[in-house]
């Protein structure tokens, strides 16, 4: 494969968006954010009420980029070995043979992740953090590319286990899809009246291309003042009156990567402050732990980040 140029990322974004839009009606910004996470080698947490198309979006993305896909349906009785795989003694060969679990795929959909016990959730930590898995002392490389798309329902509390902070921080991005508009919903009904659109969806890329583009995104130029702006933003989350625990340096790094990917999807090989602003809420909001009083008042991480985006100076022209 020839070395792609920065323009090919924008083209890739357009093609994938078009392909996913055959299944998902509207939600262009959310699709763009998901592509940003994919190109930044990050994992996505789709958080929303049931029935808005979280799973379908994840499956459409997996199908669009080709590669291996697996799905983990989380339940309270799910064991870590159900995810990672298990070594079974082969009587014929007289040795243990490793049977890989569903995590051994390039795109993994972890559906309703908060229904799994913390022990099971923790089994995803190494995989998501280092793109490798250690079972019985043997390490297995995951991907590339390796993308975890987890979905969770924020409304239900019964029979759910909230994700621990360490786990949440490993998600590069949290996206809410929200309800479709009237016209969008009408279009959904029309499309799905006779057949499931996901069935006819073809892949329009390949994992190798995704890996190449991921590498290319890292070369997107970031000017000094943009880096300063990112740092000012994350520092501001740490000193905000309503925040108990602000964004970590991993958050700064994620925001930098996301800005690079967003810029590349826009067809630019340099980052501008708007790229940071476009991605900041999805990257930082879920990393904040708000003070109990603020939570009682109904304040959310999204609101805090939006407030900070309206306060932290950009320093466009000194």
């Amino acid at each position: 494969m020839t070395e792609p140029r920065i323009d090919s990322i924008a083209e890739f974004g357009r093609t994938l968006t078009e392909n996913i839009s055959r299944v998902i009606v509207g939600k262009k910004t959310e699709i763009r954010l998901i592509l940003t996470a994919l190109l930044s080698e990050g994992h996505i947490l789709l958080e929303d009420v049931p029935g808005v198309g979280k799973t379908m979006l994840a499956r459409a993305l997996a199908k669009s980029i080709g590669g291996t896909f697996s799905r983990i349906q989380c339940t309270p009785d799910l064991l870590p070995s159900d995810i990672t795989g298990v070594s079974v003694f082969d009587q014929k060969a007289g040795e243990f043979a490793f049977h890989p679990g569903p995590i051994m795929a390039q795109v993994v959909l972890v559906d309703e992740i908060n229904r799994a016990t913390p022990r099971t959730q923790a089994s995803l930590l190494e995989a998501m953090g280092e793109a490798q898995l250690t079972v019985d002392g043997t390490s297995y490389q995951l991907g590339p590319p390796f993308l975890v798309i987890a979905t969770q329902n924020p409304i239900e509390f019964e029979g759910t286990f909230p994700l621990p902070e360490a786990q949440v921080d490993r998600f590069f991005m949290r996206i809410s899809l929200g309800y479709p508009t009237l016209d969008e919903e009408k279009e959904i009904l029309r499309r799905q009246q006779s057949e499931k659109p996901l069935i006819g969806l073809e892949s329009c890329s390949c994992p190798q291309e995704v890996v190449l583009l991921q590498r290319l995104v890292r070369d997107v130029y970031v000017e000094e003042s943009i880096r300063d702006y990112i740092i000012r933003l994350t520092h501001a989350t740490r000193s905000h009156r309503s925040v108990k625990l602000g964004a970590s340096p991993r958050g700064s790094l994620a925001l930098l990567r996301a800005s690079q990917a967003w810029a590349a999807l826009e067809g630019r090989d340099y980052v501008i402050p708007d790229d940071v602003k476009h991605t900041a809420v999805s990257i930082l909001a879920h990393r904040l732990i708000l003070s109990p009083e603020s939570e009682m008042r109904g304040l959310t991480g999204d609101a805090v980040i939006k407030e900070l985006l309206n306060q932290v100076p950009v320093n466009a022209e000194p």
């Binding site: 501008i272 402050p273 708007d274 602003k277 985006l309 309206n310 306060q311 932290v312 100076p313 950009v314 320093n315 466009a316 022209e317």
Partner: peptide, 11 residues
């Protein structure tokens, strides 16, 4: 008036 938190694009 351009606010300090406004990007050139927003301006």
């Amino acid at each position: 008036v351009q606010k300090s938190s406004e990007t050139p694009g927003e301006f």
